[in-house]
Nucleic acid binder design. Structure first.
Lengths: 156, 156
DNA sequence: ATAATAGCGATAATAATTCTCAAAAGAAGA
DNA sequence: TCTTCTTTTGAGAATTATTATCGCTATTAT
């Protein structure tokens, strides 16, 4: 029963912790903690979607119209977060790049090539094997990602 | 000794077979077999690199200057090949999308975040586990890809 | 509160990708 | 091989995605 792939979305840290980490990171690099950066982090945290820069921008305009957040700020902040390894970007097939918060539990992706749905899962056996492979090849592993493409239950 | 990650690039089919498959595919879809399509397929076959559309275009201009292949044709052909599952596209981190021939043996990627080098490997244990996971989740697996990010030997 | 500095939005600039169209090339049949 | 029909091509325009610039504003440290 263990070692069975499980299908879930789970956070390892709560928002306050995440925000704290972000503030530390900013301070370390002489960067400022701005409202824009905060709401972008918050929006990413509250989204279970994998967001493209543009969709994130729309979300932000809907939720915080008074801030009039510009698209450039979205790109800038996503780059900042990605450089700091707080978010990771993914690009599947034809669709463009999408971002997701890295602070969630690590997970891999199951992508339905018919309806486009992305299901997340974690499998300990694979996680472990990845570490071993990196070691064997003299690689210091920082991160990894895996995607399985196919047809989901519903589409069959 | 088995189950050890190995680092290689190996083709499962030779060029004539590949070309044959391509011709069949084209005929099936009422598409024409053109010189441009042939040299693009050939160039992808002969490259061990993961090619961005632009680098592919440069390669083609170098190797077949008389054809004056346009960038639009490169994009068109890559899309065609991707739609037909003959090539797959990858996008790692900041760099844009790159294409590789899918007819090579399946392999995963080890990406050095310092120098950008991409090493390919295959691990049977992971391959098998991926199939199991897809089954467990009621998914019909068509393909998969995996990336491990880290620092390679040389960069350490 | 002030001064110093980084960040912001708007938008211009650039890069990446797709579209348009007239000319050229491939396929099929006579 | 010649003709006809259809698809593809290259060139460049158009669109989309991303990044850079800049004067003004907000944040931080003092």
């Amino acid at each position: 029963m263990s070692n069975v792939a499980t299908n879930f979305t789970q956070r390892t840290i709560n928002y306050d912790q995440l925000l704290g980490d972000f503030k530390v990171l900013l301070k370390k690099n002489n960067l400022k903690f701005t409202i824009q950066r905060e709401v972008i982090l918050e929006t990413l945290y509250n989204s279970d979607e994998h967001l493209a820069p543009e969709s994130l921008h729309h979300l932000l305009q809907d939720k915080f119209p008074e801030l009039k957040i510009g698209i450039a700020t979205v790109y800038r902040t996503l780059s900042l977060l990605e450089d700091s390894d707080m978010v990771t970007s993914l690009s599947f097939g034809a669709q463009g790049k999408k971002y997701e918060l890295g602070a969630k539990n690590h997970h891999d992706h199951l992508i339905c090539t018919s309806c486009g749905t992305i299901t997340e899962f974690v499998d300990e056996e694979i996680e472990e094997r990845q570490h071993n492979i990196a070691d064997e090849l003299g690689f210091t592993m920082q991160d990894h990602s895996m995607q399985i493409y196919g047809i989901c239950k519903n589409c069959k």
